[in-house]
Structure formats: C-alpha cells, structure tokens
C-alpha cells in the first residue's frame, strides 16, 4: 500500500513538465526515504535524478519499496488536470498495475481521481560517485535559461569555462560566435539573485545545448540553479525543490577526438 499526500501539488506538476521532454518512460521508486526517479534519455547522454523526501509530504505511507513504471507524457497529461492549488495524493495497492492520482481543491469542494495504467520498464540504476567538483556556480535559474536559449540560436554546443574572472558560456555557429561572461556578484538585494562561483581550479567543458535547454524546463521549480563542473566528468545542473529535495540533471561532455 502506497499513499503520498502532497499539499503543494503544483510541485509535482512542475517536476513532470521538467523531465517529460528528456525521458519518455521511467520507474518511480518509492521507499522510506522518499519518492525518487533515476532515468537516462534514450541516447544515454543525459541522466535525471529526482528526489522528493518523505518528510516533504503531509502524509507518507509506503509499506514496502515499490517501483512504478510510468509513461511520463501520460502522467503529465493527468497532472495537468490538477489545479495549481490542488492537493495531490498518489495511491497504489501492492501488486496493482495502476496508480491513482487524487486531486483535492483547497476548500475540498472538488475531488477528482485519475487512474493511470502502469508499465513494465527495464531500467538499470547507475552508481553516481561522490565527486569533488573543480568549480561550482550558483546563479539565478532564469538567467541560466536565458543564456542557454540565446546561445542555441547561434550554435549547437556550449563551452562552459570557469576562471577567476567568472563563468563564460561560449558558442559558435555558421552566422558567428557568442560569449557571455557572468562575474561573481554577491552584492544583490536578494540572495537568490546572486551569482556565486566556487573554484578549486579552472575548468572548461563542451556540452550539447539541446540538452541544456531541456534541463531549463525545471526553471519554475527553483529561483536558483547550481552548475557543478569537473574535467572528465558529466556536468551536474541542479534545481532544488523547496524543502523537499532536488532534480539533478547530469550531462556527458563532448570530448575532442
């Protein structure tokens, strides 16, 4: 028996919108820790790891570990039927081949339940090693989204370089080149508007902009984004989910042949 009641149902709606472009089908894993997902895109270039901790739910019952295979576009279709202020409850019985999403309006005058068929998905979990990153950049998520969108109108790849000067996003294409430098800026009115760069050593890596743009679908989940870079490792683009957990996107670099 599984019953997870999330008062801020809009978070789950935003999570689905953030990952459904990258991943078609995925197993949601439910355990005492929380509601989680790990999945790669079909070409195995990007990986998404989601965690919504059990403490973040108003009610969290998960009698035994359960893995539920879902088509994310179908799940998104159902969650779009929930109002932004609705409370969402996810329910499943042991051994059942369906999951139920219950939507309650804030004043309890409308209650809807949507039952979705589950699917069998063969998926392997990858071990993500704890890494010491050479550089960690925290910046406003909207600013990062803007940069990715702007650069993708010029080129297909972005070179992200972190030096003492700041973080530089560069691209090149048929029509020309573009460089955007963001300097560390802690003197802002609100902490979420700051750009903070922690650098152990300079790092420069190349990535496909198509995936970066897809990650920025998570922008509505968090005011800030954290980009962690090490040479020879996938970049981590992390959006924290208020008091509950995170979505982390890992993207494999492009390497000189």
């Amino acid at each position: 028996m599984l019953e997870l009641r999330l008062v801020q149902g809009s978070l789950l709606k935003k999570v689905l919108e953030a990952i459904r472009e990258l991943v078609n089908d995925a197993n949601f894993d439910c355990s005492a820790t929380g509601f989680s997902l790990q999945a790669m895109d079909s070409s195995h270039v990007a990986l998404v790891a989601l965690l919504l901790r059990s403490e973040g739910f108003e009610h969290y019952r998960c009698d035994r570990n359960l893995s539920m295979g879902m088509n994310l576009n179908n799940m998104a279709k159902m969650l779009r039927c929930a109002g932004n202020d609705d409370i969402i409850t996810i329910k499943a019985d042991d051994g059942s081949d369906t999951v139920t999403f219950m939507f309650e309006s804030p004043n309890q005058d409308k209650i809807a339940d949507f039952e979705m068929k589950l699917m069998d998905i063969d998926s392997e979990h990858l071990g993500i090693p704890d890494a010491e990153y050479h550089a960690i950049v925290r910046m406003p998520s909207a600013e990062f989204a803007r940069i990715c969108k702007d650069l993708s109108s010029i080129g297909d790849t972005v070179v992200i370089s972190v030096t003492k000067e700041g973080v530089k996003f560069s691209t090149a294409g048929d029509i020309g080149t573009a460089n955007i430098v963001c300097r560390q800026n802690k003197t802002v009115d609100k902490p979420e508007e700051a750009t903070v760069i922690e650098m152990q050593e300079p790092v420069s890596l190349t990535f496909a902009l198509r995936y970066m743009n897809s990650f920025t679908k998570a922008t509505p989940l968090s005011e800030t984004v954290t980009i962690s870079l090490s040479s020879e490792l996938p970049v981590v683009v992390e959006y924290k989910i208020a008091d509950m957990g995170y979505i982390r996107f890992y993207l494999a670099p492009k390497i000189e042949e």
Binding site: H44, G127, T157, P234, I255
Partner: peptide
C-alpha cells in the same frame, strides 16, 4: 571535431 560521450562511460551500472 568533438565527440559526444555517454553517461555510462562515467557512471557504472549497479
């Protein structure tokens, strides 16, 4: 040219 690597090159299967 640059070659796209995959996640499985870096993270092992459990």
């Amino acid at each position: 040219g640059c070659k796209q690597t995959t996640i499985t090159k870096f993270f092992g299967r459990l």
